[in-house]
Design a protein around this nucleic acid. Structure first.
Length: 430
RNA sequence: GUGGCUAUUGUGUAAUGGUAGCACAAGAGACUGUGGCUCUCUUUGUACGGGUUCAAAUCCCGUUAGCCACCCCA
């Protein structure tokens, strides 16, 4: 329905029915993060544009065409965060968090923004949850966050996500591999697609991700990255794999796993799931050993991943893994005005009910009533719709006797209880 | 950013260029102080802006949005 004002393209309202699901998923994820020893960090939703350009990489699609960038009133260029790592690294350095702990394990969740044409599994405002382990380089960390990602998916009932693992090398061996790519394709650049011709010059590694059939043929000539890794990177990958095997995490080595952000070094990984349309990545991440230093922080390395809430929930729905989340009301209060003449001028039943309602709520019992002064029947209908366990009836007769009627909606049994004992009686039941 | 498909009450769907229906949901009621089942009644719609026509939900153009694909990513 088109209304005068509608939500912007690629943004969605999460309505009560859905937000129940969101709370369920977010709650589960947060619990797991805490169990693994991660602490939450909340960074602002916008940052200086340069932060993202410098970290994600000036030649990446995210920076080139997908950022929500705008000038503020002082003419500074600001950008709505398109991803979570750069802001966390910025906060890490700015607040000198490396002084507090040598290794810091952080998690975050919240909205992110990319200016793209929406489609299945892709929004302009989307939501991610993620972790960053800052301050150390150890295969154990890589293995742990991969295991953590796996653990989250399994805890939500998803057993058949596929884990892709790769390595993009380090600042020593990556340039060598890039040279190898360039020299291998030297003779056949004309057979590449337009994009790859650009990538050939600016970012050869990214060509490996191209899906163009002609490009794929040419790309087959390129030797696997595994052979070009330096000894340290090779060792690092092997040790990571060993630990994954120890934790019984199955994975597929994907030598061409490049990912669209430039800051990665060594480990990269993705959890993919089919049935998300053209999108398949539910969780993606990797190691970044140079970013913190480049941003003026200490010379320490870090590792992290991010998962897409919308994609995760979509998979959960497809797989029928969302439990029925009913949030039934504990108590509904129905009140009967004495008669139509007194109803208008604040009648006793309503006041008694309204007061009792608030008292009940003070005891952590969920309670509600109908404020429209409708018929008793309509109030019961409402109580039923709200899945109320009990209904309290307050009418003229009850007021006179100083009692209320308490009806058990499951059994249909009704009992009279004294008004001033109502809350204590209810406490027993919950 | 490029391309394809689509747009009818809250939701899901009907209607040769000629009366906009149906189901569910929602609300009210069924001897008046009691829900679920049943029955009755009621409310709500052709996305927006133009054009063709005696006549447009239907045909044409534009806009917007959604879906899908490319690109890329969560």
């Amino acid at each position: 329905m088109a209304t005068k004002y509608q939500s912007l393209r690629g943004t969605k309202d999460i309505l009560p029915e859905d937000s129940r699901t969101w709370r369920y998923v977010e709650g589960k994820i947060s619990d797991i993060f805490a169990r693994f020893g991660y602490q939450e960090i909340r960074t602002p939703i916008f940052e200086m544009t340069e932060l993202f350009v410098r970290s994600i990489g000036a030649s990446t699609d995210i920076v080139n065409k997908e950022m929500y960038t705008f000038p503020d009133k002082k003419g500074r260029s600001l950008t709505l965060r398109p991803e979570g790592t750069a802001p966390v690294v910025r906060a890490y350095i700015q607040n000198q968090l490396y002084q507090k702990d040598e290794v810091l394990k952080l998690y975050y969740k919240g909205p992110f923004f990319r200016y793209e044409r929406p489609q299945a599994g892709r929004e302009r405002q989307f939501h991610q949850f993620g972790v960053e382990v800052l301050g150390a380089s150890s295969p154990a960390i890589d293995a742990e966050i991969i295991y953590l990602g796996c653990f989250i998916l399994k805890s939500l009932g998803l057993d058949n996500a596929k884990l892709l693992l790769g390595s993009v090398g380090c600042s020593d061996c990556r340039p060598a591999y890039e040279k190898l790519i360039v020299s291998t394709l030297k003779e056949s650049t004309s057979k590449l697609c337009d994009d790859c011709q650009k990538r050939y010059k600016t970012n050869p590694l990214r060509m490996l991700d191209c899906k163009n059939e002609d490009c794929k043929k040419q790309l087959k000539k390129i030797p696997s990255f595994a052979g070009s890794l330096c000894d340290d990177c090779k060792k690092y990958l092997n040790e990571t794999e060993e630990l994954l095997k120890l934790l019984e995490v199955s994975y597929t080595i994907s030598p061409h796993l490049v990912r669209g952000l430039d800051y990665y070094t060594r480990t990269t990984f993705e959890f993919v799931y089919s049935g998300l349309g053209a999108q398949s990545t539910v969780i993606g991440g990797g190691r970044y050993n140079n970013l913190i230093k480049e941003f003026g922080g200490p010379s320490v390395s870090a590792c992290g991943f991010a998962g897409g809430m919308e994609r995760l929930i979509s998979v959960l729905k497809n797989e029928g893994k969302i439990p029925s989340l009913s949030d039934g009301l504990d108590v509904f209060i129905a009140q009967i005005p004495a008669n139509t003449e007194t109803a208008g001028k604040g009648d006793e039943c309503f006041k008694t009910a309204f007061k009792l309602l608030q008292e009940i709520r003070c005891f952590k019992i969920s309670a509600d009533m109908d404020y429209r002064n409708g018929s008793l029947k309509s109030q019961f209908r409402k109580a039923n719709k709200l899945k109320a366990s009990y209904v309290i009836v307050i009418g003229e007769d009850e007021i006179k006797k100083g009692i209320v009627k308490l009806k058990d909606m499951k059994t249909g049994n009704e009992e009279n209880i004294k008004l001033d004992e109502a809350t204590s009686k209810l406490k027993e039941k919950f």
